[in-house]
Design a protein around this nucleic acid. Structure first.
Lengths: 349, 349
DNA sequence: CATGTAATCCAAAGCGCTTTGGCTGTTACC
DNA sequence: GGTAACAGCCAAAGCGCTTTGGATTACATG
């Protein structure tokens, strides 16, 4: 069923039918109702391509997910992020187009998508400290919203981010307050902006307590379970091992916990762990009592905010760049406790 | 830059330029090269909507992800599945459109997407034992490929699946061979077809060994970490607790392990665990030595196969329904061992 | 009664592409 | 030399919608 057929059935022109469906005022209310019920009856939907050819709008948003050529990992956080984004899209009739693109031909991919005109805007994932994409997208001219921030950016841009620096600052101070002096940071990939901010917060808090950050206790990589495990295992074998771990993702934290237990140590009593918690739906941090002490912020919520902002931007492109900084909550769980007295831990092990 | 402008620059008709770009033979090779280099120079791409309006093809595939109204969980396996699918799409120039849809208005969503004509086909996720979608999609008429199977389906359809029954049959026998008689099944949601097949394989293997399946040792739910944890914790408190767990997902298996350790028990020695392993990129089952003994099959690979099959179907719709049954490997890890002697386990705890 | 105004509706153009059905000029063959 | 075949190109139609710029009618106003 297309417009032409529908309008013939109704004995109206295509113009009138189109206007009636799109809510224009030049249509008598009685006619509009007649049109609407006929459209429902025949399950009519305007063809997406015809409409976007005519309007220049596609009602679709691109999510370009970078996949490093070395790592080939699709961030699992992504599943919850798009769940949140799609809540927004669903409400506004937008489609979500996903392109998984190797970072090698990232620029080409963005340009191509824009040139084909298949979307109205971009959500930028996993921004790096100096991310060329924000320059690129400014040049391309389509609206975009960054999930995260780009520290070294020449132009203003729209973003939604968590206050990573403060979250890790607080978590570090919390551990220091418990008497921990050897606090390890199991961070995300170094090039990622969020990782840098987290490390900043961590280092700043340590120095605030008169502790000089020890490079041997700072690690950065893709946040997998095995990475968390290997890192914690290695650090626990150091001559002067950490008594606490600050971990950038609950997935890596699971690996850290595994290493702790394999070493015959007990969480909270021997080793404290604080993790960043994205509130993943399939990996909740416990049901009632949090398993891990955590700095927590819902990535699903962030997804929704990004999408909503982008929709607003698409519908009214004249807006000045805006941003949204979310604060992470620090929730106390069962994975933290006072620093063990010197020597005690080794006796136990 | 559009076709008209490009053809004016080249002093050719739009017809010729279009033909040159699309590889039609009625164009002199010299002209084609001239066109191609001009197109590259001006970064010309045909407008997606104009092209699909003219051809009736969109070069896009819809992935409709069902989200239960009760659970609101986006399956994390999904991230790796689409990574695999997008490998196929990238190679063939297809876009991936994702709709997260609450199962309540699933039918409406499929019909709407089809009526708008914004995609050439569907990938069907998370099929249930009696899934109305295969009837619905047959009626709609667009090609589709199911990731998994639908046991109760009236019509033939295209699918890619793992031999879940055999995988769980083998795993159960493996545990039985180690002397385990009390083997628990921590399965996925009951309505899911894969869960049913896994349970079939499990029950069949038990009966083959003269063991009657105990309903108290069989649980089904959304496969989260907390579900694995709560289930294992409760079962370990039974008067006659299991000595082994067969788990449907590595995420739930992490929860099972946590419960085992909390109970003061040791994996392999006191409690054996076999998990299904989708080879998730962020949750690898160990690096060199598998942590869990597992039945393993890459969901990323399955994603690629689904997408490739669907592309073939879109490009040649006349094909008879085909299918692909993948076999899962059983890999021995550090989580299984001989069943403990009666009474020993309790003494340890 | 003539005329301005508002309310409804419509014909047709145009969005950017593909594709049908020709049209030209060159070559091959008898 | 005449004609058939073919290579190479093009004009124009059409995909299904939105939107511009009227046209028509009804009604109120002077």
């Amino acid at each position: 069923m297309n417009l032409k057929e529908l309008s013939e059935i109704l004995g109206l022109s295509q113009t009138t039918v189109s206007r009636a469906l799109n809510g224009y005022p030049e249509v008598a209310e009685a006619t509009r109702l007649r049109v609407l019920s006929a459209a429902a009856k025949y399950n009519y939907r305007p063809s997406a391509s015809a409409r976007s050819l005519a309007t220049g709008r596609t009602n679709a948003i691109a999510h370009v997910i970078p996949v490093s050529t070395q790592h080939e990992i699709v961030n699992p956080i992504f599943a919850d992020f798009i769940a949140g984004a799609s809540e927004a899209y669903l409400g506004h009739g937008y489609d979500m187009v996903i392109s998984v693109v190797s970072d090698a031909d990232e620029a080409r991919a963005y340009r191509e998508i824009a040139a084909r005109g298949s979307v109205d805007g971009f959500i930028v994932h996993s921004p790096r400290t100096a991310d060329p994409r924000i320059g690129l997208l400014n040049e391309i001219g389509l609206p975009f919203v960054v999930h995260g921030r780009v520290s070294q950016a020449e132009h203003p841009y729209d973003w939604v981010d968590v206050n990573n620096r403060r979250a890790f600052h607080r978590a570090t101070e919390f551990l220091a307050d418990l008497g921990h002096r050897r606090i390890a940071l199991v961070n995300g990939l170094e090039v990622m902006d969020f990782a840098r901010r987290r490390q900043d917060g961590y280092c700043q808090a340590l120095r605030g307590r008169g502790i000089e950050p020890d490079p041997a206790l700072i690690r950065s990589d893709e946040m997998t379970e095995t990475y968390g495990h290997a890192t914690a295992r290695d650090m626990l074998r150091l001559p002067d091992p950490p008594t606490a771990f600050l971990v950038s993702s609950i997935i890596a934290a699971l690996g850290v916990r595994r290493a702790v237990e394999e070493a015959g140590l007990q969480l909270a009593r021997d080793i404290s762990v604080i993790t960043y918690d994205d509130e993943l739906s399939y990996l909740k941090n416990g049901n009632d009592v949090p398993v891990f002490t955590a700095t927590r912020s819902s990535v699903r919520h962030a997804g929704r905010l990004c999408a909503e902002r982008l929709i607003a931007l698409v519908q009214d492109p004249g807006q000045a760049p805006g941003s949204r900084l979310l604060e992470a909550e620090l929730t106390i769980g069962l994975s933290t406790g006072p620093a063990p007295h010197r020597g005690v831990r080794r006796a136990t092990a």
